[in-house]
């Protein structure tokens, strides 16, 4: 368990920036104590200072996880967000997509979102921006990358992909052993 290097912090924030923009500040500056990012085996964890102090008493070989896993760094030093980060992405998301109830299952099985499944999309979504996916009843389902901007969405045909799938809460079942 170690602090993120400056380079890696930058990579992490750049990634988070795509989803929650300047709201990252709210993750760092919290009224309920100090929270920080820690790295273990290339995985990045978001932990409160209190939990961190407790976790430091556990030997590195025995410690598997602490706080919330945000994702991991790949071998080529890119950052991949995990579905476990959704709890912190959803409330601060800048761009959202709401899914029609009929398209929810498709998305939860790991498919991209088609125009036909699109219920609502937040205004001024840019192309290739990170978006958080909600059901119509405002339950966060996952996140992805917008394949089309809002304006383009209006004119595309119903089978065109609107959002690329990145992570969904179905992974809690599908990839149970990979999640920390």
């Amino acid at each position: 368990m170690k602090r993120l290097s400056e380079e890696r912090t930058k990579i992490l924030f750049e990634k988070l920036c795509k989803y929650i923009g300047s709201n990252i500040k709210l993750l760092i500056e919290r009224p309920d104590g100090i929270y920080c990012f820690r790295e273990k085996k290339d995985r990045v964890f978001y932990v409160s200072e209190k939990v961190l102090k407790l976790a430091e008493t556990v030997g590195p070989d025995h410690l598997i996880s602490l706080g919330t896993c945000f994702g991991k760094f790949t071998k080529s030093n890119k950052f991949r967000l995990n579905i476990t980060a959704l709890n912190y992405l959803a409330p601060y998301a800048q761009c959202k997509i709401w899914l029609k109830p009929s398209a929810e299952q498709q998305f939860l099985y790991g498919h991209h979102i088609k125009k036909s499944g699109l219920g609502r999309i937040s205004e001024s979504t840019e192309k290739y921006q990170g978006v958080v996916i909600f059901s119509m009843s405002d339950i966060p389902l996952g996140f992805g990358v917008a394949a089309k901007s809002t304006a383009e969405c209006k004119h595309s045909d119903p089978l065109a992909i609107v959002c690329f799938h990145q992570a969904d809460i179905g992974e809690y079942i599908r990839a149970e052993e990979d999640l920390l």
Binding site: R3, E6, T9, K10, F13, E14, C17, I24, K25, I28, E29, I34, C36, F37
Partner: peptide
């Protein structure tokens, strides 16, 4: 550490 993080964030 928090301040360092904020500095990195601001630069981004």
């Amino acid at each position: 550490e928090k301040e360092e993080n904020l500095a990195v964030l601001n630069s981004i």
